[in-house]
Design a protein around this nucleic acid. Sequence first.
DNA 1: CTGAAAGCGCTAACAA
DNA 2: TTGTTAGCGCTTTCAG
Lengths: 323, 323
Amino acid sequence: MTRPKRPTSSDVARAAGVSRTTVSFVLNNRPGQTIPPETRRRVFEAAERLGYRPHASARTLARGRSNIALLAIPDLPMETGISRFVEALAAALAEHGLTLVAHLAGRNGRPLTDVCSDIGASAVIGFEAFDDDTLKGLYQAGADIVIPASKERSGMGPIGQFQAQHLIDRGHRRIGYAMPRNSKVIRMAEERLRGVAEACAAADIAPPIVHSTDVETATAAQAVTGWAEEAVTGICAFNDETALAVLAGMREHGLSAPTDIAVIGIDDIPAARVAAPPLTTIRFDLDEVAHRRADMVIAGLTGREPTSTIAAFSPQLIQRAST
Amino acid sequence: MTRPKRPTSSDVARAAGVSRTTVSFVLNNRPGQTIPPETRRRVFEAAERLGYRPHASARTLARGRSNIALLAIPDLPMETGISRFVEALAAALAEHGLTLVAHLAGRNGRPLTDVCSDIGASAVIGFEAFDDDTLKGLYQAGADIVIPASKERSGMGPIGQFQAQHLIDRGHRRIGYAMPRNSKVIRMAEERLRGVAEACAAADIAPPIVHSTDVETATAAQAVTGWAEEAVTGICAFNDETALAVLAGMREHGLSAPTDIAVIGIDDIPAARVAAPPLTTIRFDLDEVAHRRADMVIAGLTGREPTSTIAAFSPQLIQRAST
DNA sequence: CTGAAAGCGCTAACAA
DNA sequence: TTGTTAGCGCTTTCAG
């Protein structure tokens, strides 16, 4: 199927019997201009009839700035929730005329900076702070604003704290931490672990006993052996998948939660609900983070001061049988 | 942080002591041109030193076609695997100079056609066929090629067949099908169910007994009751999460897999490995699908005949304890 | 082998 | 109130 030649703004102007300027003014609803309703109608009608869509590249070139925001989705198994986050962000940005697209980072994909430059993104939004080279590259690639700009707190620490606090509140005094082995998430896990350690320190109990495991029974069973030897009674897992692995490792030893050891995850993935036993976990409100991110983008683009600077998560406990 | 003015191709030309034409030729490695190595070096050096990146919009405008491909990710729970698919697709397209970005479809997000036009995508790639209006809109928005073009088979049926066949091979004669309740995936589930039914028909056994369930224990337990009454011995679940729910439902009744009823899922999510019992499931090779999709895009863009037309999945059985 | 010049489709001063 | 005009940064034909 061959595509018919695309109508340009000149075509619309001709069809409506006006100049291109007028077309531009009408279609962009330019303030401060007083175009007679009749003329406007004619322009709209012509544009509609011809199926006119402004050429984005031409517009961007002329305006000097695109209306595209690029979301860099890290190469993490962020599974559940991420799409809700993306949608919320897209909606928030759309209110300000920005279109959001996503780049899924990966080993073989093109570098983020290239993508940014290829699509001419005005704003780039990430989850964690970008390293300095990337940041510089992004600006070179034409981004006007990059978020998070610098070493902004990623908000992962508080999650770990919240997680540990739940266990502490239920009387646990020997806390274990289940670290994932997947190197992609190590940094995030370390941040969360830090939060757990802080909570322990604040409660004046021993720091968490850390063991790492894959999402698989054998290594988890080994880790469980380690915790058992240290008389750990409650385990904070990096996320639900890791928690599920720990549960499997315990099963292997004939141990069960929460009687022998309590386990708490993070994320509230669907599988957590139907695990044996159902997994206590933490969910957090991505919508709020999305709105803050959007606010920062708009602020940066318009030169206004951002309403909020810190991207905080609002953790919510999902109490189930495993604790 | 204010971004320094971006260097243009003229800046590079000036710095290298050549014309913009030469810069363009060198940087685009234009064939049929014989530029002296020394000149080339000077251009590269200047571009590097200035941190020059060609302006995508300007290039697109001049060339008449962007190098952007847009992937429309449907509003499904982004389960596992999708990101691997995206990466494979991105990599395959990158080999041909195309940059892939994704649009997560959603209730509140901007319509796909708008996104397409805003980013000036040359190609739009979907999972299922687009409806006629969308298709038309996409072409109007400037897309040169849209895939899947028309009512192409989505390749989900064969997966269901494969799944059922495994149960049949192991001697099961009363097959059940666990349908998800999440309306977003109903269509996909129906396609898979069709495949299961075909396999049953081919093996000359009764059609599958269908019950639906959420990813949650109560409804799953109800469904299990239904299957038990029908003396079902093997259940094909829509996906792993649904399968996990079925397992939980069985547990509720004191039934265990595979002794009482065998269960098989689809997707091979991490949680399947550590379920009780570990879940037999099916993984399919998204890489291959990605490559075919990419091939079709490139073919369409260059006018060449596509190498392959049907997007087939290569299902692979992951045998674990639940069957 | 390199440069001059003409657009690509749109926006935005500036005139009329 | 509307039209004229000059770019935005890049590619590409055509001369030199």
